[in-house]
Design a protein around this nucleic acid. Sequence first.
DNA 1: GTAGGGTTAG
Length: 804
Amino acid sequence: MKKAATKSINPCDIRAVANFYAAQLQLCCPHSPTSYPHARRVHAHMTTSGFKPRGHILNRLIDVYCKSSHLVLAHQLFDKIPQPDIVARTTMLAAYSASRKPDMALEIFNTTPLRIRDTVFYNAMITTHCHNDDGHAAIELFRGMRREGFPPDNFTFTSVLSASALVADRETHCQQLHCAVVKSGTGLVTSVVNALLSVYVKCASSPLVSSSSLMGVARKLFDEMPVRDELTWTTIITGYVRNGDLDTARQVFEGMEEKLVFAWNAMISGYVHNGFVSEALEMFRRMNLLGIKLDEFTYTSILSACASAGLFLFGKQVHAYILRMEDKLSWDFSLSVDNALITLYWKCGKVDEARMIFNNMPVRDLVSWNAILSMYVSAGRMNEARSFFIEMPERNLLTWTVIISGMAQNGLGEEGLKLFNQMKLEGLKPCDYAFAGAISSCAVLAALEHGRQLHAQLVRLGFDSSLSAGNALITMYARCGVVEAAHCLFLTMPFMDSVSWNAMIAALGQHGHGAQALELFEQMLEEEILPDRITFLTILSACSHAGLVNRGRSYFDAMYRLYGIRPDEDHYARLIDLLCRAGKFSEAEDVIQRLPFEPGVQIWEALLGGCRIHGNVDLGVQSAERLLELRPQHDGTYILLSNMYADVGRWDDMAKVRKLMRDRGVKKEPGCSWVEVENKVHVFLVDDTAHPEVQAVYNYLEELGIKMRELGYVPDNKYALHDVGSDKKQHGLSTHSEKLAVVFGLLKLPRGATVRVFKNLRICGDCHNAFKFMSKVVERDIVVRDGKRFHHFRNGECSCGNYW
DNA sequence: GTAGGGTTAG
């Protein structure tokens, strides 16, 4: 039947029919929603009428199918062509490139004979490599096409220049390509110079080169351009913005005769990213006054400005304005703006509102999901974060990074490391941020060997200059007890920020090197690194650990006066801790009286801790009572209070506290200590009998005890008595977990190696005393990290100076 | 038939 139909059309008519079909397909605009159904109808008509499309009609049909995302259909058609021409091949290849299927594009490329290839075809393949972030492949292909004698054109140069921006040695490639551009005669084509500008600008913002000279090259190109388009302006403006030179960016911007929305957006986002929120808002107001039509980029940038500056009310006004004109906006618009709105709400602490926006979004993308995940993580709502993560329809590197570092931040190191491994199993290559999350997990677990291995991997992968990983490593080494390694790393880091300084100051403070910590802080100020609220938390702790009361007090005063940072509850708590440890109770009470807020858990904990050290029972009882009201289920308060009564022999009161604890069903967190030996973590509990080699430990402990007593060690049974729930106390036989772990380390670790032990709770007084003697007897360093700080025992002394 | 900039998630 079909044959009959074909036969009935004579050659003249076939040409007329072909023209008809071509005209019909011409009606299909590339991205209109009606183009695909129309093309299908035309296609069906051809099939039923027996017309066999060839040449440009076929190519056009393939093109429409590709552009309307019907790649399978397009490819079926393509496969039916006996010898597809270069136009059909380029169309198919570019379609695969645009839909991020580089393997399919490469297959078409490789099966296309050299003799029919042309420059356009190579250009399309170079672009495919760019979209696949494979700069080297793109550059290699560019070289190949020149070897084969295909002349590069302006399209070739724009693509290969953007490829060179992707590679590490981009500056070299860029300069070579610049020469090739000049030789090819495309050196005055606007699009080519734009691409050149773009690479120079990117090279300049790389931290490894001196930016000023490269921005100079870019500026010269810009000044000498015969024709500039809007892209030119945006590129040069963002160039200055990325290099932090907002004044020059502004000058260039003001020099534009007709300021297009692109350029406004570049300025606004530049101000936002560099922290100049009021300038960004000023730009926004000016745009409104001039009646410039705002687009989704303007709104997202301005919402992000509000989010980072905490300008909730202004942001809400923008939100209301957007809602009023919502019906005029497209879906795509609403997606990115909704994402920015989520960020606005959660950064301003409105977690549930942010979740509502997410729930009501008609379309969501990964950015939306990742934003909510980050929100739960930073709010410490890890159960919600965990289930949200599982629910996610897709994940990318960022998703994994957020959840891994979130686990670490919330003390869930084991889960963090598990997720890091799972991520690798799923075939994702961790970036430096993901490594930072895994390293922080090691810091939480005090898993030194594991952390060292991650450090080694990091160096092998070339991430050793990474800021985030470096900062995480400082903290990891410090928290694993190797403060020297942390310091060494800090001194050799190629780039640093305030986080790096904070981490190192905190490391020195935790290890009892208070004076050094303060020295480093002064150096930080000299280098004009602005301290933040975390910096002050760490120096107040450092002062507290080292007993530097006066300096701590004066830093506290300087915080707001000199740096405009209002002290929060945690700053006040550290101040009170500092004062109480030094026995200055009336001053501490005075501070509490004049607090600008209701004292919370942290304040009373600090006070109680100080009272315990100095045996100030009355004040201690008062603060414990407040704590028991605020947090009745927390075990720590009961333990501290009962220990305090025991210290002064008030056994009845002690018994009452224990009864109260039992009545309320509060369980004491069992004390445990652990030590890493040959990459394996050995955990000990009080009076441990479970560890397979525990008998050897008890034997060696006895042996050491004899030598220690010869040097003057007197066991203090008072502390053993305090162990709630331990029935061996009357005999004074109880052996704390930290003693077992230290002795196991002494037995198992190589001769002379430092023993590093970690304990979940605070170290006990008798153990502290015992380790001093032990370090002298065995002539080895012993490091113990307890819940609060580090103790370095060496030659009979502890780094804390008994001040803890 | 092929190219290039600005946004939102760490």
